[in-house]
């Protein structure tokens, strides 16, 4: 958690989209920005890029206010996937409240997914977060492409971890909101246990979810 000020009634949460280079983390945020209602969210801020590759991070902020008056801000970040930006990944990962791991479904990327996940484990422990504690969802992106790992294989590998695994094509826009919703659900449970969002602030899970993930122009 970035900030929690009880007197000021402010809570700032951080979600991080992690994953190997070019797996579609920024595309996920772009699609969220397009698909979700403008009300309750800010604009996507893309920091400096080089050849369209993220070198710092992207940021998409969301806002909502609990019945108690607690103002909650949810900041969704991407990390740069390239191996050389590890220090930036560590900086962005600090005090994260939830992580979406965006894997690349292509068969050629299996090894990169694995080493990026190892990197996530290592960096979480570096910033003092237990990987078995933090809300974590896995997204297999680029399901629209040919030459991808079959869904059965993905499930066989990840099933035993108990982590939620979602299929998506960020380019075509499906699976993106579902991934975000799953992560927001888990994050709500995690924060609610500690800060009593429901009991102390009258903010139930459903309201939290709907406010953060309502589709634009009355869709869904």
């Amino acid at each position: 958690m970035i900030e929690y000020d009880e007197q000021d009634k402010r809570m700032v949460l951080k979600l991080v989209y992690y994953g190997p280079a070019l797996s579609g983390k920024t595309t996920n945020l772009l699609r969220l920005h397009d698909l979700l209602a403008k009300e309750g969210r800010g604009d996507l801020m893309v920091l400096d890029t080089k050849d369209d590759r993220t070198i710092f991070f992207d940021l998409l902020p969301f806002f909502l206010t609990a019945p108690s008056g607690l103002k909650i801000k949810l900041k969704v970040y991407t990390v740069p996937g390239q191996v050389k930006h590890d220090a930036t990944r560590k900086a962005v990962l600090q005090r994260a409240d939830g992580v979406a791991f965006i894997a690349d479904s292509q068969l050629s990327e299996v090894a990169n997914n694995a080493s990026s996940f190892e990197n996530l484990e290592r960096n979480l422990s570096f910033v003092g977060i237990g990987i078995d504690v933090i809300p974590l969802v896995i997204q297999y992106n680029k399901r629209d492409l040919a030459g991808i790992v079959p869904e059965d294989d993905v499930m066989r590998v990840w099933g035993k971890t108990g982590l939620p695994v979602l299929m998506a094509s960020a380019l075509q826009g499906w699976g993106v909101v579902e991934t975000f919703r799953k992560l927001v659900e888990l994050t709500y449970d995690h924060i609610d246990r500690k800060y009593g969002l429901n009991s102390n602030h009258g903010l139930d899970r459903e309201t939290f979810l709907v406010k953060l993930t309502q589709a634009s122009e009355g869709e869904e």
Binding site: M45, L47, D48, F56, F57, L59, A87, T88, K90, A91
Partner: peptide, 24 residues
């Protein structure tokens, strides 16, 4: 405001990364 914020974020993360790299 937006461009100023971007500059600050960029500078801050750059400083954080440099500090961290230096400590590493």
């Amino acid at each position: 405001i937006t461009s100023s914020l971007k500059r600050m974020l960029t500078t801050e993360i750059h400083t954080a990364v440099v500090n961290q790299s230096f400590e590493e």
